[in-house]
Simulated assay, not measured.
Amino acid sequence: MIIGIEATKAFEREKTGVGWYTYYLIEEFRKIEREGVKLRLYVNPYSNIKYQISNIKFLKWPLKYFWTQGRLSLEMIANPPDVLFIPAHLPPLIHPKKLVVTIHDLAFKQYPEVYSKKELRLQEWGIQRVLRKAWRIITPSEFTKSEIQKYYPRLAKNNIFVVPHGVELKTQNHNVKLKTNIVYIGRLEAKKNIVNLIKSFNILKKNYSLILIGPQGYGYRQIKKEILASPYKNYIQELGWLPHEEVAKHLANARLFVFPSLYEGFGLPLLESFAAGTPAVCSDIPALKEVGGDCALYFNPRDPEDMAEKMRAMIQNSALRSESIERGKTHAKLFSWQRTAEKTFVILKEGL
């Protein structure tokens, strides 16, 4: 029996959220005892991929776009797997009956203004197609599952399974000299609420630096404008995308992790801050409260004053910091990519 996985994002050099999710699942799948079950990884070879992993199928396609809808669909006709797993929510037009798709979030429904018209059309088409065609659907949180049920009550079925993400629990060396840094990890885009983060930093600024780690996204021009207008622009660093090891070092050596997002389906950087032993403040939104529990300090993401107040409290209150750090470390141990992969594999294998 064969489980096929659309694995392109796992092999991208500059991986972000969905890429790391796919990568860690594949790594853990390879460790799981799979008697009678084979994995087949489908990859768009548009980039220079150097990984040497068995069972990869590089599916060449002459066009820059439509690889999933075109080339992967052709592969499903010629040589379909028993189950096809799509870690991001856009499946090919043609697929086996047993199609499993992960829907990470429905941000485009609540905040359409932060998407281009083209992206909105694609997102809407993709979600509706998944809800109509998928044999099983995976979400990373109860919140995302409830969003599907809220926005698509006629399409949502009892085939939605919640499987939380995992987190790496690697110990990092802490450098006390760098403990004046406030770190944000994620795309620099409108829905991540970076403009209000800059405003709150302007209110807070006192011997601290703000480190922004992540690639540019939709709405970056306004973010850059806000940074250049800040009286403390020399204390704001944009590091762009960094390798995972470098991100982990910055996070472990930060005074504080801040996550001001307006909308998340899970919020993996929050969990990563807990594992790194770095206290966190974040938006008071459902998914982050589901993931963070009582380990973080929450603020109103629309209110820079409140954001600055919560950052100041977590930075200056030593008792609060210590409690948050210890709770976060304990909480992070409840999440692992091994556990995520095992639960996901059960969902996939039950279709064989």
Rank of each mutant, 00 (worst) to 15 (best):
E75R: 03
Q338R: 13
N253Y: 08
G214R: 12
G328W: 10
K343Y: 13
R13Y: 05
F266L: 03
H244I: 00
M1R: 09
N181I: 06
H331R: 15
E27H: 04
K224T: 05
G70W: 05
E309N: 14
I86R: 01
S116I: 14
P164N: 00
H89K: 11
P215V: 10
Y46V: 01
E238K: 15
W135P: 11
L120I: 12
K191W: 08
K109Q: 09
P164I: 14
K199P: 02
R339H: 09
K157P: 09
R34C: 06
L334N: 12
Y208C: 09
I198K: 15
I32T: 14
F85H: 00
E12Q: 11
L93S: 10
L348F: 09
E28W: 04
P45H: 14
N196V: 05
L41K: 09
L188G: 06
P92F: 12
H174G: 01
L178K: 06
L271C: 00
D294G: 08
Q149F: 15
G126F: 04
M307G: 08
G217T: 08
K118E: 13
V162M: 01
R129V: 07
L39K: 06
N207Q: 09
R154V: 07
P286G: 05
Q149M: 15
K310R: 12
A252Q: 04
T330Q: 07
K64D: 13
Y24V: 05
R154F: 11
A276I: 06
L348W: 15
Y298E: 10
N158D: 04
L270F: 12
S322Q: 11
I5A: 09
I315Q: 08
R136V: 03
D105G: 11
K118T: 12
L39H: 13
K150M: 11
I3K: 10
K177V: 10
K233A: 14
N253M: 00
P62T: 03
Y65D: 14
P269Y: 01
F161E: 12
I49T: 12
S47I: 07
A78M: 14
L210N: 09
C282Y: 07
N196M: 11
V101A: 08
I325S: 01
K60Y: 07
F274N: 06
G351F: 07
S146Q: 15
A10K: 06
K98H: 14
Q128D: 13
F66I: 04
Q338T: 06
E350H: 00
K60E: 04
L169R: 15
A296N: 10
K98P: 00
L270S: 05
E113N: 15
P91F: 10
N55H: 09
L212M: 10
F143Q: 05
I185H: 01
L122I: 13
I94N: 04
E323L: 12
K289S: 02
K289W: 00
K38H: 01
E272P: 14
E264D: 13
T68Y: 05
S209D: 14
F143V: 08
P140T: 02
R327E: 01
I227A: 07
Q237H: 15
F345M: 08
F299N: 08
W20E: 04
P96I: 03
G186H: 10
P92Y: 04
A229K: 13
L256T: 13
N79W: 06
G214S: 05
Y21C: 01
L120S: 00
F266E: 11
P92M: 04
F345N: 07
G36Q: 14
E226N: 03
K343E: 15
M311T: 02
D306V: 08
N55K: 06
